[in-house]
Design a protein around this nucleic acid. Structure first.
Lengths: 221, 221
DNA sequence: GATAGTTTCATACAAATGTTTGAATTGCAA
DNA sequence: TTGCAATTCAAACATTTGTATGAAACTATC
């Protein structure tokens, strides 16, 4: 199988360029120039441009998902099959937030690539994301074990909102900083994780508050 | 200025096609074919493809923003300058959710277009979104008046999370339905609005719970 | 009804881009 | 070394795409 030199040079160059400039205006010619290889090499090694993008994304996705499951499993084992909901949620959103936020200058290429993927959402990536459901089901199952008295629907909504806060904060981090004039410190990642987890935990535990507030809100209609 | 026939036919056709098939694979030729007009008409009336997209998006955006501000203003006047936080949040996320969720078959073209714009995020639209900050500032100000004891940073985070839940739910509605096997009913829009508002309200009011949960979560690290 | 301004149309342009081709080169095994 | 497969390369291909052009058709004003 010889050395992967060309193949990995393409992957590295592509990830860097996509991270810096987005999928929209990076062409195969840009990539091969950056990688110092021939144009045809991309199709030879990956088949097509889309398959190259897909490979980049799956690689990073499985890394994140592995990390998430590692944390989840550790928490469940420690709790004898039942982990506290905060810890489950932390395993869900922590790895992504830690990977994508933090000081800008020390954000890895991989992280910046994943942020791009989250913002631009190009077809090959969308296709892969649709297969992520099985992964999320594991978290839903764990959350049900953690909060057996909670309805299934509420669990799914809690999961949805937790992901919402994490992903939206990453996607719109620039806007949040501008809106708050820098007062929201997105470089303090653990604070962000804590905020997301605590809000999501509230969603799933503070039954009365939620019901009351929802009723109140409905009246106001 | 003659009749707007061609111009509005292009706008209508473009919005419909973009809503149905996304920005990625709709060309000017598709649009003019659907509109029954000449190819050159787009550049004649709009200058460029991007300006056409921009016009579509600003039109729908100002509609939503107007609706939001109308609700906000009504609430503040009723409360003599201070509106309850739930009502402010409802004015923030209600119009968008009501416009984009609900029974699929009765979702307007405009709504479906805005969902696309939220998912695909094409350059001309991104440029416009960046100017939306002034609009959000009005909500931040209103929220500060409503919760004067709350820190400014917490207000911004609450605003961020409220938008996060609303937009993410719209963006990923399909996935949430699939994940929950239809148990999360996104057609009951008022229920969704209520959930988002109540969670966001909790974020901003349940100080002790949040602090405690955040500390707990930090320990678990 | 002539004229000037606006709008429409067919067509051409120009550039970008992913992909393919077939020959050249390389590396390794027999 | 010879032979064979894998890899690299330059070049060309084939489309697709947004945009520009200039003539024709239309409209309203005087």
């Amino acid at each position: 199988m010889a050395s992967d030199h060309t193949r990995s040079a393409i992957l590295a160059a592509a990830e860097r360029l996509y991270a810096d400039r987005g999928f929209g205006d990076v062409t195969l010619r840009d990539i091969v120039a950056e990688a110092g290889v021939n144009l045809a090499a991309v199709n030879y090694h990956f088949g097509s441009k889309d398959e190259l993008i897909a490979e980049l994304f799956v690689t990073r996705s499985v890394q994140t998902n592995r990390e998430r499951l590692r944390e989840l499993k550790a928490a469940e084992e420690q709790g004898g099959g039942r982990a506290p909901i905060e810890v489950i949620l932390r395993a869900l959103v922590g790895p992504t937030l830690r990977g994508c936020l933090g000081p800008e200058n020390q954000r890895s290429t991989a992280a910046r690539f994943m942020i791009r993927a989250s913002i631009e959402s190009v077809p090959p990536i969308r296709r892969i994301k649709n297969r992520e459901i099985d992964h999320l089901r594991k978290f839903a199952a764990s959350m049900r074990r953690s909060l057996p008295e909670r309805s299934e629907v509420d669990i799914y909504w809690g999961l949805n909102f937790a992901l919402a806060m994490a992903h939206h904060t990453i996607r719109e981090s620039e806007r949040l900083i501008k809106l708050s004039e820098g007062k929201c410190d997105l470089e303090d990642v653990e604070d962000v994780v804590g905020r997301v987890v605590s809000v999501a935990t509230m969603t799933l535990t503070a039954a009365k508050v939620e019901a009351k507030s929802r009723a109140l809100a409905r009246d106001a209609r």
